[in-house]
Amino acid sequence: MATINVRRDVKDSFYRYKMPRLLSKVEGKGNGIKTVVPNMTEIARALSRPPSYPTKYFGCELGAQVKCDDKNERYIVNGEHDAERLQTILDGFISKFVLCASCRNPETDIIIKNDDILMDCKACGAQNMADMRHKLSTYIVKNPPAQASKNQRKQRKAATAQTNELGGGFENEEGGSDDDIISQRINKEAAGLSMESKLAQEDWSEDTSEAAVAQRMRELSVKGVAAFAEDDDEGGESKYELFGAWLDEQDNNTISDDDIIAKAEELDVYGKYKACQVLVQCIFDESIAAQIPKRANLLRKFVTEEKHQKAALGGLERLVGLEYKDALMKKVPGILMKLYDVEIIEDDVFIKWGEKPSKKYVAKDVSKAVKKAAQPFLEWIENASEEEDSD
């Protein structure tokens, strides 16, 4: 996921306060159109604020209703809003409720005192009052953030100390430190020397047994594919095969969402549409209808745009048509309804997918059989979409 400076007015590429670039996903149509921010949790974590704060700020600035589902990590703003517009509004939230008014660093904690919001800066020690005139202030007072744990404070303190290790330097008008770049380079060199020292102490004798050699070959193949595989539209099939083989080896009842995401990132397939097809085909079995709600958060993190949705349906075709034909073919309408209920696939994508058989993921006759079995659901969703347009 691409990262940007927390303060977008700072163009320094070495600026150490980073956050993910905001993503937006428009769902529904007509009066039911809405914009989902799929990575709001990651953005909020980078800002050390609850995800509901920036989401509510969007609602205040846009005059729109919002929905914060912390349990499922789903944050919605009613209406159609593009990512750049929301990113600009987020800049306003950061300026008002994240940055220290004295040093302009984002190392602040919110303290509620006598119904006032104080911004306690861990970088310079200043305490400044937030803008109490903004509508969000009332929400923050009524929903104060959980206090930062001692471990989080230690980590942040250590990060601050690393930058100021050589005496801090003079601050410019923007609040940044003039010697940030020099400090970071020295710290990197020091880290490199420390690593060299550790490497010197390592035992470099190599296990040459047959099993050890086979294991190293597997590791090299994974690393090589991750580093050199081309874009998923232009080849690089091996990394998806490795991802699928790894998923098949896991126990679907015990493997966590975080472990799956970590493996996808290791193989450089996270965020790629073909990974969505492999994921659906490999993490589900004949109990898919019961498994979808449990894996809804994982699916939302992989399936973020229309191309991903189509690939996920392609994975479903393979799962039903090739692996569990006898057990699942008659259950296709119910499976699609589960995907609809957890808002993984948009109405238009379902309808386009069901229009005609395709040989992209399975043989054409298999695709035809799956989509024929899906007809009750497809007719229902098409009628529902027409009624929504009419309303």
Rank of each mutant, 00 (worst) to 15 (best):
M1Y: 09
R7I: 01
K18M: 00
S24R: 02
G28Q: 13
G28N: 14
K29A: 14
G30I: 02
G32V: 11
N39A: 01
I43N: 06
I43D: 11
S52C: 11
Y53F: 07
K56R: 08
G59I: 01
G59A: 01
A64T: 10
K67F: 14
D70M: 10
D70E: 14
N72F: 09
V77Y: 03
N78P: 09
E80N: 11
H81R: 03
H81I: 04
L86W: 01
I89E: 15
I89K: 06
L90F: 06
F93S: 02
S95C: 10
C100F: 07
C100D: 08
C100K: 02
S102M: 15
R104P: 02
E107H: 12
K113S: 08
K113L: 05
D116W: 13
M119A: 04
A126Y: 13
D131R: 00
L136D: 07
P145G: 08
S149F: 02
Q152N: 11
A159L: 10
F170G: 15
F170E: 15
F170H: 15
E171W: 05
N172S: 05
D178I: 05
D179H: 11
D179F: 10
I181C: 06
S183W: 06
K188E: 14
K198I: 12
A200F: 09
Q201P: 04
Q201S: 11
E210C: 06
K223A: 12
F228A: 06
E237D: 14
E241K: 09
L242D: 12
N252Q: 15
N253Q: 13
N253M: 09
I255W: 13
S256G: 11
A262I: 00
A264V: 00
L267T: 04
L267D: 06
L267P: 04
K272T: 06
K274S: 00
A275D: 02
V280L: 03
C282G: 12
F284L: 02
A289T: 11
I292M: 07
P293G: 07
L298W: 06
L299F: 11
L299W: 07
E305A: 06
H308V: 00
Q309M: 06
L316G: 02
R318Y: 11
Y324L: 00
L328N: 04
M329I: 00
L336P: 05
I345Y: 01
D347N: 12
W353P: 02
G354V: 00
K359H: 10
D365A: 08
S367W: 09
V370F: 08
K371V: 03
A373Y: 11
L378V: 03
E388D: 13
D391G: 12
